[in-house]
Design a protein around this nucleic acid. Structure first.
Ligand SMILES: Nc1ccn([C@H]2C[C@H](O)[C@@H](COP(=O)(O)OP(=O)(O)OP(=O)(O)O)O2)c(=O)n1
Length: 544
DNA sequence: GCGGATCAC
DNA sequence: TATGGTGATCCGC
């Protein structure tokens, strides 16, 4: 806790420096905070007729004075300071570029290397596939409308406390995802807010996926309401020409079918890869489709005009950082490539370049649950809770529910983390790797409690627990049995000591687990395909 | 390896 | 009066 406080003091100091400024700064400062408070969904479709300026004003006024507001204000200030520092850095680079010969040379060499890297990327551009991104419209709200027809004609949203989504009727009022309910009601007093029913949405989601399987058996669900498909095999199988009209026609057929059979309208993006298909599905919404022609020149032109925020992975912060450098579009990114290579780290830089060229993966493959890296649960209390018995009982309940989730997926964990959010909206996590794999509620609670208690005294509004370094329980047990060479083994499930006699061990483990599962896992063990990153010319800059 | 920050949905 | 839950990734240290 001490360190957290001292960090805050630093920020306070800097804030004071910022407090001495002119009116122009003040206005500027309010403007960015207003944008931040507007939330991440400002550019969602369905708000074309909305006066964003007015909405942001209402949100700002409704938020003012709350602890949440204070926290956001602080975050906004930090971001603005970071952007200002980067701007100074850039000035320095440009100054050196004017006067410093050695630096000029370095800059030129770097530009050459980046260009080589870009050529490499372009030569690998895959235009042989037809990739489709399917995104359900206002998904949770659509499912609710199916259950109750009357909701179709009134502004409605789904969520509790904070909205998960709103139907298009509600969006006309500026109501959108991630907006707190009380502000939404201010914007639209007659708004109906329904509680969440995720299992129901999951059923609908599966129904849609099953329909789409006809077009790609390997389709890859990207979230509860999105799937990627590779349409190429379907087109080939049916001897369909891959011209634009035909592709549009097939997608039209898919959309009509999904709407007719499931009642949910979808929007589709058709393009050469997942990156472009995803962008495309957002271009025309709801209940529509958009095709990015599968030709290098058209793709490059399309990308060059595209605002950076449209690409998956560029959010509010990175967008602002780029705007701070006068970079608005992906074209601007390419034009400023050398500068950006100095400003951002390797991964971020490569991603910016790749996306700006419109290059993306064409692999559509469902890794399913085997790819999951962590699993957890968290809860926000109606009132902040201080250290003590009540808090610890909440942790216990969370651990119980985590144990259930693990058990349902047959997973065990080698690492655990506890998350807290203070009543001032500061988020912290404490993580610990474990000597053994754990999975039952008692062990989870025991480890989590240790982490939580180290942070006392506390006063928090949210508590969470998450398990990571996961492995399949059956495969773990199988490997433990195979490699066990000692006279006695401890049961990997309950840890009791057993004689090293396979029959005894098996019999015992039967109690903990079904042996068939273990055998199956041993047989299938080497199915995983490790993903290897290709080495690029550009790596040289970033290696030390 | 850990914790914070960012991002998506 | 009041701002969610789940999971992933990157970066600095
Ligand atoms: N901050 C968010 C955003 C979304 N969701 C949930 C509710 C949405 O219904 C679902 C799908 O999210 P999308 O971003 O695809 O948005 P919608 O489908 O709701 O609307 P759109 O028509 O704009 O795609 O995910 C959520 O819980 N929290």
């Amino acid at each position: 806790m001490k360190q957290w406080k001292s960090q805050n003091e630093d920020i306070e100091k800097e804030k004071n420096i910022f407090d001495i400024h002119n009116d122009e700064d003040e206005l500027d400062y309010e403007a960015t905070l207003k944008r931040r408070l507007a939330g991440p969904s400002v550019l969602k479709s369905g708000q074309e007729s909305v006066d964003q300026e007015r909405i942001n004003e209402i949100i700002y006024e409704a938020s003012k004075g709350s602890k949440y507001f204070e926290a956001e204000q602080k975050r906004d200030l930090e971001l603005r300071m970071r952007i200002e520092r980067v701007r100074q850095e850039v000035k320095e680079y440009y100054r050196k570029l004017e006067h410093n010969n050695a630096f000029q040379k370095e800059w030129a060499e770097r530009t050459d290397q980046i260009d080589t890297y870009m050529q490499e990327l372009q030569s690998c551009r895959d235009l042989s596939q037809v990739i489709v991104h399917v995104d359900c419209d206002a998904f949770y709200a659509s499912v609710e409308e199916l259950r109750n027809e009357k909701l179709k004609n009134i502004p409605m949203a789904v969520g509790k406390g904070v909205l998960c989504t709103a139907n298009y009727m509600a969006r006309k009022f500026g109501v959108r995802s991630a907006m707190p309910e009380f502000i939404a009601k201010k914007l639209c007093p007659e708004l109906v807010v329904l509680p969440l029913d995720i299992p129901e949405y999951a059923v609908k989601s599966k129904e849609i996926q099953n329909l789409l399987l006809e077009y790609d058996q390997n389709l890859c669900p990207a979230s509860i309401d999105e799937v990627y498909m590779n349409l190429t095999p379907y087109m080939n199988r049916n001897k369909l020409n891959k011209d634009e009209d035909t592709m549009q026609q097939v997608i039209m057929e898919i959309r009509n079918k999904v709407l007719k059979i499931t009642g949910v309208s979808i929007s589709c993006g058709i393009a050469a890869n997942k990156l472009l298909a995803k962008i495309a599905s957002n271009m025309k919404k709801p209940n529509d489709q958009y095709l990015v022609p599968i030709e290098a020149e058209v793709i490059e032109k399309f990308m060059s005009k595209l605002p950076t925020r449209r690409i998956n992975g560029i959010g509010r912060v990175l967008e602002q950082e780029l705007l701070g450098l006068d970079i608005e579009t992906c074209g601007d990114i390419l034009n400023n490539r050398t500068l950006l290579s100095y400003i951002f780290r390797e991964k971020t830089f490569q991603n910016l370049i790749q996306c700006s060229l419109g290059i993306g993966s064409t692999i559509v493959q469902d890794f399913g649950d085997s790819y999951r890296k962590s699993i957890g649960c968290e809860i926000t209390f109606s009132n902040a809770i201080a250290s003590g018995g009540l808090l610890e009982s909440k942790l216990q309940a969370l651990c119980q529910s985590l144990a259930e989730s693990l058990s349902k997926r047959d997973l065990i964990a080698n690492s655990i983390s506890v998350k807290i959010k203070t009543d001032t909206f500061q988020v912290h996590t404490r993580q610990k790797n474990l000597r053994e794999y754990i999975f039952n509620d008692t062990d989870l609670f025991c480890e989590a409690l240790r982490l939580l208690r180290m942070e006392y005294p506390l006063r928090i509004r949210l508590l969470g627990v998450r398990a990571s370094k996961l492995t399949n329980k059956a495969s773990y047990i199988a490997s433990r049995i195979k490699f066990s060479k000692q006279n006695s083994v401890s049961c990997p499930v309950c840890r009791i000591d057993l004689k090293d006699d396979l029959a005894v061990v098996n019999q015992h483990i039967d109690l903990c687990l079904n042996t068939e599962t273990v055998k199956k896992v041993i047989d299938n063990e080497k199915k995983e395909i490790p993903l290897k990153r290709k080495r690029n010319t550009i790596d040289a800059f970033f290696r030390h």
